[in-house]
């Protein structure tokens, strides 16, 4: 930070490019509009609705995986759906994150006895944040996104620290 000569305010920030990118990334986590089941009403619709309004923390939906940063897996994934989930994940550009929302996406939930149900979406795609609940409240989803932001921040710091140590 540097003090502006005229206004006396902090106006110039010295920051590594990586940190700048991560600052931007974690404040514009656009998720893919991909509701599978019940959790979609809470995690995607209520979340973008007026009360919870995730838009204020930069979290907003995009209709295409090509434009999305985060995939919220909101619902039960069965074996017919698994292939699609994997394809959509592969279509997302790097860097990308996955939020497993609700009991079904975490472990199979109330349907885990049924052989057609995938026991947690982490068997198909790597998951960054697990949000428990059936369904989780929108507040839980918001907390999940805050955890994801912390994770992104920490990833950069760890990377920079590792590079510093190696010199």
């Amino acid at each position: 930070m540097a003090i502006d000569r005229f206004t006396g305010e902090h106006s110039i920030a010295f920051i590594r490019v990586e940190q700048l990118f991560d600052l931007a990334r974690r404040n514009s986590l656009w998720y893919m509009a991909f509701g599978i089941a019940c959790c979609a009403i809470e995690g995607l619709m209520s979340a973008s609705g007026p009360r919870f309004d995730f838009d204020r923390m930069g979290v907003f939906f995009r209709a295409s995986p090509r434009q999305a940063d985060v995939m919220i897996v909101a619902g039960t994934v069965n074996k017919k759906m698994a292939e699609t989930v994997k394809t959509l994940y592969d279509q997302m550009p790097e860097p990308k994150w996955v939020v497993a929302m609700g009991a079904c996406a975490c472990t199979g939930g109330p349907f885990r006895e049924y052989p057609n149900v995938v026991l947690g979406v982490d068997q198909i795609v790597p998951v960054d944040v697990y949000i428990p609940g059936c369904p989780p409240r929108p507040e839980s989803v918001q907390y999940g996104f805050m955890q994801l932001q912390d994770k992104i921040k920490k990833q950069t710091e760890d990377r920079l620290a590792a590079r510093r140590d190696s010199h």
Partner: peptide, 24 residues
């Protein structure tokens, strides 16, 4: 794409637990 076997699972639920499946 969302087949979770609600009907089959209901055959292994007690009667007062059916509502839990119907909710979903």
């Amino acid at each position: 794409y969302l087949h979770r076997g609600i009907e089959k699972l209901a055959e292994h639920r007690q009667y007062n637990a059916l509502g839990t499946l119907m909710d979903r």
